[in-house]
């Protein structure tokens, strides 16, 4: 196991290296001159050149890249040209908010979706199965934007129960964003849990388990579900990773100060340092989550061998 961990860490470092190169190149390929954008329309060519020099943009690409990597390794993420602040400050102030939203969404999403999927899969064709499938269908087909607006209209405008913007309302602020983001995630988790259960319940060993006189609930929730859980864990991991990269739409609508809008603004302003840092952060998050999912899955299902 230890050997495997080291191997994966090594792989992660390589992946992050590639991510950094891609991030570095991608934002530069988009064209546009950050120095010009900073200096403003009325600046003279000399002023623009001055800013270019101060940002290090006059150096050849390779030099720029190595300087960038060197700084990262020293913990210096650079300075955001659009905010005028160190990038690290920006990310540190926004990332926890995205993390909180993503975590609560995943938690509630799973608490709702997994039991729903298990029950629906165990009772295929019944009323509960019908509603579970409907729930999943709506969750995946309705656009998040639309869901958000409807929720705000019902719960904030009409009923007046919940705040529609910001994070300051405590738990109440989480409800609508989590419902919006979570519904879509729950939809997928429900479907996968359900189909996993349906497949598993047809297996011989399930009949054998019933034949041992074990209570049906235990048969389904413990002995059957453990066979169906690995794809669920993988899916949840992936969705969590996506959410951590920031969900632009939900964060914009609810004025949730997370990472989502940051990338959008950064690209528009050609804020090289910020874009690179955000892409690198996303890459790191995904790598870590993938790693965790692999470890968890191997612990759950002995047939999965870590190589």
């Amino acid at each position: 196991m230890v050997k495997y961990i080291f191997k994966r860490l090594g792989q992660t470092v390589i992946v992050l290296f590639f991510v950094s190169v891609i991030a570095f190149l991608l934002i530069r390929l988009a064209g546009g001159n950050p120095a010009l954008l900073l200096a403003g329309d009325g600046a003279t060519d000399a002023e623009i050149a001055e800013i270019e020099r101060s940002l290090g943009l006059d150096q050849p690409l390779v030099v720029q890249y190595f300087k960038y990597i060197g700084n990262i390794l020293r913990g210096d993420l650079g300075r955001s040209t659009s905010y005028g602040m160190p990038v690290a400050n920006l990310i540190l102030s926004r990332f926890p908010n995205t993390l909180k939203l993503a975590s609560v969404t995943v938690l509630f999403g799973c608490i709702l979706a997994i039991p729903l999927g298990i029950i629906a899969g165990s009772h295929q064709g019944t009323v509960i199965d019908f509603f579970a499938t409907l729930f999943a269908l709506l969750g995946q087909s309705m656009a998040n934007m639309w869901k958000a607006v409807v929720f705000i209209y019902i719960f904030s405008v009409w009923l007046g129960w919940l705040p529609s913007i910001g994070m300051e309302g405590g738990i109440k602020s989480y409800v609508l964003p989590v419902m919006t983001l979570g519904w879509q995630m729950s939809a997928q988790v429900t479907r996968i849990s359900r189909s996993g259960m349906i497949d598993t319940l047809h297996e011989d060993f399930i009949t054998a388990t019933y034949a041992k006189g074990i209570h049906p609930l235990v048969v389904r929730w413990k002995y059957a579900f453990k066979n169906a859980v690995c794809p669920v864990i993988t899916l949840v991991g992936m969705r969590f990773g996506t959410m951590l990269a920031g969900t632009i739409i939900v964060e914009a609508i609810f004025s949730w100060p997370g990472l989502g809008q940051l990338l959008n603004t950064a690209v528009n302003q050609r804020d090289y340092a910020l874009v690179q840092a955000l892409l690198l952060l996303s890459g790191a998050m995904f790598a870590i989550i993938n790693f965790a999912v692999d470890i968890i899955n191997s612990l759950v299902d002995p047939r999965i061998k870590l190589r």
Partner: peptide
């Protein structure tokens, strides 16, 4: 309060949050 999505901001406004 920074609300970039205009239609939902208006909904917030109507609900009394703005």
């Amino acid at each position: 309060r920074f609300l970039t999505e205009v239609s939902t901001a208006i909904t917030s406004h109507i609900s009394g949050d703005l």
